[in-house]
Simulated scan of single mutants.
Amino acid sequence: MERDNSTPVAEFVLLGLPNQTIAHTILFAMIVLIFIASLSGNSLLLFLIYVNSTLHTPMYFFLCQLSFMDICQITAVVPKILVSFVTRKNVISLAGCGAQIFFTLTMGGAECLLLAVMSYDRYVAICSPLQYSAIMSRRLCLTMSAGVWLGAFLDAFLQTVSVMYLPFCRSNVVNHLFCEVPVLMKLSCSDISVYETVLFVLGILLLLIPSSVILASYIRILSAILRMCSAEGRRKAFSTCSSHLTVVGLFYGAAIFMYMRPSSYHSPEQDRIVSVFYTIVAPIVNPLIYSLRNRDVLAALRKLGASRRPGTSYGYGGP
């Protein structure tokens, strides 16, 4: 069906969180708490890395970007959900919907690529510790970071333009918490096979290839860890790697389940649950995993707390 034969859609109605039941009110309160905790945890992690010169290493440079992505990801989604629940106005404009899709895809795609970069960083640190500083130079870190953001931007731009060009003539009611590509594609009355193919190819580039890089890196890392003579060295390496793999499993699992399936296999209930994992749950899990299981971050936090006591002074290095 041609676009000109369909009725243009100027806005969408997000069903979001129904506010008639106690259960949804409790869920609303939980989302508020998660939102506040995520912003606080990621902001604190950014601050600790900024003020503590001992954390100015490639690993924490990438971790800073992960925290920034999590802040932007949850901010692009949760405030609209909360406002809609309170005001009972679930309408979002076409431009607003496109902006929400673009920002969530940019941050999600950037996190996919960044996790692969972080796995390479851990591979070099564990498998080639003597050459780590030379290999993970400032120039290489900046180049990989630029590649992460450029790749995420291009992916988000292509997907956003593709889905916004579709004619939405079936309905403007989005049975979801926020605007997302697979959900909107189901509202189109045109043939979406080409768009599904584009989405699948982009999913391979942003999900399957990076996850393969992560898998290959950790196979090499595991092999190197098992050859270590020091039990303490093995314990520390396992601790660091298990933290990263926990984040990878949570994020990639949900994203692949959402974006690598045909639209005919999607259900509103599944989409809502899966989307919550990588847009709301992941941003709070990341700082908890990387801080509570990281002795360097915990030491920096204790040092910061001690420096706030009267009569105590600690020198922090700048960035």
Score class of each variant (00 low, 15 high):
228 M>Q: 06
78 V>A: 03
3 R>T: 14
132 Y>H: 12
171 S>N: 07
207 L>S: 01
250 L>A: 05
132 Y>N: 09
67 S>V: 07
18 P>D: 13
199 L>V: 14
89 K>Y: 06
86 V>K: 06
118 M>N: 02
226 L>C: 08
175 N>V: 10
240 T>M: 12
116 A>L: 00
143 T>F: 14
153 F>L: 09
249 G>N: 09
196 E>M: 02
116 A>R: 00
232 E>K: 09
143 T>I: 11
117 V>S: 03
29 A>C: 13
277 F>E: 12
68 F>A: 15
87 T>G: 00
293 R>F: 13
251 F>I: 08
98 G>Q: 11
18 P>Y: 04
207 L>Q: 08
185 M>V: 12
270 Q>K: 13
209 I>T: 01
116 A>I: 04
123 Y>M: 07
189 C>V: 10
270 Q>C: 12
20 Q>C: 12
307 S>Y: 04
308 R>A: 15
11 E>T: 11
162 S>T: 13
152 A>G: 09
108 G>N: 00
91 V>P: 05
145 S>C: 15
165 Y>R: 09
283 P>G: 04
280 I>K: 03
81 I>W: 06
247 V>K: 02
221 I>Y: 01
243 S>L: 01
287 P>E: 02
137 S>L: 06
194 V>D: 15
299 A>E: 10
126 I>S: 08
176 H>D: 08
142 L>K: 14
210 P>I: 02
154 L>K: 00
176 H>Q: 11
168 F>E: 03
113 L>G: 01
52 N>Y: 10
125 A>W: 06
93 S>N: 01
175 N>L: 07
18 P>S: 08
122 R>W: 00
267 S>E: 11
221 I>W: 05
182 P>I: 04
79 P>V: 09
55 L>G: 03
236 K>A: 14
77 V>I: 15
189 C>L: 09
30 M>V: 12
112 C>H: 13
309 R>N: 10
299 A>G: 02
55 L>N: 00
215 L>V: 13
146 A>I: 13
252 Y>Q: 07
245 L>I: 12
316 Y>E: 05
315 G>E: 13
265 Y>T: 15
95 A>Q: 11
231 A>S: 08
113 L>T: 09
50 Y>R: 10
249 G>Q: 07
239 S>H: 07
87 T>M: 04
160 T>V: 01
273 I>T: 12
52 N>T: 15
244 H>E: 08
306 A>N: 15
149 W>Q: 15
311 G>D: 03
85 F>L: 11
285 V>H: 08
195 Y>N: 15
206 L>V: 15
250 L>T: 10
95 A>D: 12
295 R>V: 13
17 L>N: 04
292 L>H: 01
282 A>R: 04
288 L>D: 00
204 I>L: 14
141 C>A: 14
212 S>L: 08
139 R>D: 03
265 Y>G: 12
58 P>C: 05
177 L>A: 03
152 A>L: 06
124 V>E: 04
268 P>I: 02
159 Q>F: 06
116 A>K: 05
221 I>N: 01
72 C>V: 15
156 A>T: 04
136 M>N: 02
151 G>C: 01
69 M>E: 02
81 I>Y: 07
165 Y>W: 09
48 L>Y: 05
148 V>I: 15
198 V>Q: 13
311 G>S: 06
57 T>Y: 07
255 A>N: 07
289 I>N: 02
295 R>C: 03
44 L>C: 08
160 T>S: 05
78 V>P: 04
267 S>A: 10
199 L>C: 13
